[in-house]
Write a protein that binds this DNA or RNA. Structure first.
Length: 548
RNA sequence: GGCCCGUUGGUCAAGCGGUCAAGACGGUGGCCUCUCACGCCGCAAUCGGGAGUUCGACCCUCCCACGGGUCACCA
């Protein structure tokens, strides 16, 4: 068989050669050991939480090694493509601060190894496919779906492995005449790899995460170019990652099954294989059992969910990092203020089995992250969130920034900062009472407080309040009030003999807190009063007393 | 079903032949505190099962069970 003749017959329009491509995409000028990594999602919908997991691992690994991190879009399947998904990915990654050195951008490409959208690389793929045909390592297959189905049935009956291979590969050894005839009849065809593998022999691959992997060699004549001239994942992966000089290919573990395909493909193409890094799948608990986080059923699969719900972006980032490398938590405790980029991310610490995405733990991480922020930072974040999700609150925040920042500054900055909220969506409930427009007037008194007593204490307090008090003076006044009303001003004395008092100064403080904030849980009452100002404090206490 | 991969408390996990089997989240008891929150001190809770190898096994080997992945002109 004259393979050159066949190649020309199939691809007369392809004038470029693999050599041209090598010249066009030369090796990168990077230091020894620098990794070139990437994330290459398929634009089939929204951005999955797993994509962030992958992106962070790739970005950290590449940059820690002094290498490059790029973004490619795997849009070879036009049937599944969702309009605007690629752009959504780009903006979403941007929101999470994932920075690419090169790759697809909103209006095109940025980098020397493009195009970065596979749909624009058809000629490149065909160049290599043509070469494979010339080498006798690929051939056209004109089988219809029905024929493929018939082969499968036959294999089932014979108890053979399913697939298109060996003696079942109808067109593998077809004559040039048969091929020309089929071509003339205009039959659609795909290009298949002519596998030289032997399933009774083994291939070994060392995975950077999973370790030693071993399988039977590939024997499938899998498709490398679909009938529309476009490649399926496998072929695009080989060509792109080679030409873009990817050193480490990280992808989900659903790809390990086809690793033998890739091994044979890289060999046939004469490419050096990248280091493979197969990651575990993120799971969630459903009822009693673990399962993959699914796009259909789980809103938390979508990264946009976290933004909408008000999760701080750094909270998600830090939580995902602990999922990636569980020792990140310990590192963070030891380095509370260091940027995340100082952390020495490593493949070795990556889990081999699927981790459960624990939203409760995420929340805890978020509270920590928020507690480390300055009031100003919290303000900016809350305001940005409210702008899109809570216009009423947004207006109040915008109207008086200094006021909001002062409120958010209560209990912040010390060694033991308050951790009142983890989500931006919780801030309104936390500080809403500072705004008259949001202060409902509902009072959540603890059940142990007597109403008449509370009313009496509140009324008395109105007379002794002085907005110029220092904190200790302010509290001394409460103690004096406690003493005169039969409440213990000294907590130790109270604990020793509670029956000797109507209550303690703690109860009095609580009465004031609830009268002023409506809630049992609030920042320091003195600070609250200070910010609220005399008029509103007395107003609120008077009405509270009147209500009782 | 074939082929792969995995299995340490409810969850995330450290450990890699000799440990009272880290730590974190969650749960729970207490302390501190003007209330919460924070913080601190405790408690409960784990090596899937069975054979080996070994003086000794969570760590090594084999078998089983369970979980997951994959078997497309989708990625």
């Amino acid at each position: 068989m004259d393979y050159n003749y066949l190649a020309e017959l199939l691809y007369p329009h392809i004038k470029t050669t693999p050599e041209d491509m090598e010249k066009k995409y030369p090796a990168r000028d990077l230091p020894e050991g620098a990794r070139v990594m990437r994330i290459a999602p398929s634009p089939t919908g929204y951005l999955h939480i797993g994509a962030l997991y992958q992106a962070m691992a790739n970005e950290r690994s590449a940059h820690l090694s002094g290498g490059k991190f790029y973004f490619r879009i795997e849009d070879t399947d036009s049937k599944r493509e969702v309009q605007g998904a690629a752009e959504l990915f780009i903006t979403m990654f941007g929101k999470y601060g994932i920075k690419f050195d090169e790759g697809a951008v909103i209006d095109g490409d940025d980098g020397n190894y493009g195009p970065y959208r596979q749909s624009q690389r058809t000629e490149i793929y065909q160049t290599f496919a043509k070469k494979l045909v010339q080498d006798g390592r690929a051939y056209p297959c004109f089988c219809t779906d029905e024929e493929i189905e018939a082969i499968r049935k036959q294999q089932e009956e014979a108890g053979d492995n399913p697939g298109y291979y060996g003696k079942y590969a109808k067109w593998r050894d077809a004559s040039i005449e048969d091929i020309e005839t089929a071509l003339k009849e205009g039959k659609p065809y795909v290009i298949r790899l002519k596998s030289m593998g032997d399933a009774s022999k083994r291939v070994k691959v060392t995975d950077a995460i999973k370790g030693e992997l071993e399988f039977p060699q590939n024997e499938q004549d899998f498709v490398i170019l679909k009938s529309n001239g476009t490649p399926p994942y496998h072929f695009a992966h080989a060509v792109d990652d080679h030409l873009m000089h990817t050193t480490h290919v990280m992808r989900g573990e659903e790809w390990v099954a086809t690793l033998p395909w890739h091994v044979e493909l890289f060999d046939a193409l004469g490419f050096k294989r990248p280091v493979y890094c197969h990651t575990a799948t993120l799971m969630k608990l459903d009822g009693g059992s673990k399962r993959k986080i699914s796009k259909r059923k789980d809103p938390e699969a979508d990264l946009a969910f976290y933004i909408k719900e008000g999760y701080p972006k750094d909270g998600l980032l830090e939580y995902v990092m602990t999922l990636l490398n569980s020792n990140f938590e310990d590192w963070r405790r030891a380095n509370p203020t260091a940027p995340m980029t100082d952390f020495q991310f490593s493949f070795k610490k990556m889990s081999v089995s699927g981790a459960l995405f624990d939203i409760q733990k995420l929340y805890d991480v978020c509270k920590d992250v928020v507690s480390r922020m300055t009031a100003e930072e919290v303000y900016e974040n809350v305001t940005a969130w409210a702008k899109d999700n809570d216009p009423e609150f947004y207006e109040l925040l915008e109207a008086d920034k200094a006021y909001a920042v002062e409120i958010l500054g209560i209990g912040r900055g010390g060694k033991k900062p308050r951790k009142d909220f983890g989500l931006w969506s919780e801030v309104k409930a936390y500080m809403g009472f500072f705004y008259d427009a949001l202060f409902t007037g509902n009072k959540d008194y603890p059940e142990n407080l007597d109403k008449a007593e509370t009313k009496k204490i509140l009324e008395k307090y109105v007379d002794i309040f002085d907005e110029n008090d220092e904190q200790n003076v302010w509290f001394d006044r409460l103690k004096a009030l406690a003493d005169s009303e039969g409440y213990a001003s000294d907590m130790k004395a109270y604990k020793q003999d509670p029956a000797a008092f109507k209550g303690s100064v703690a109860d009095i403080a609580m009465m004031l807190r609830v009268a002023v904030t409506g809630k049992q849980v609030s920042p320091d009452t003195y600070c609250v009063m200070k910010i609220l100002g005399k008029e509103r404090v007395l107003g609120r206490i008077s009405t509270a007393a009147a209500e009782l």
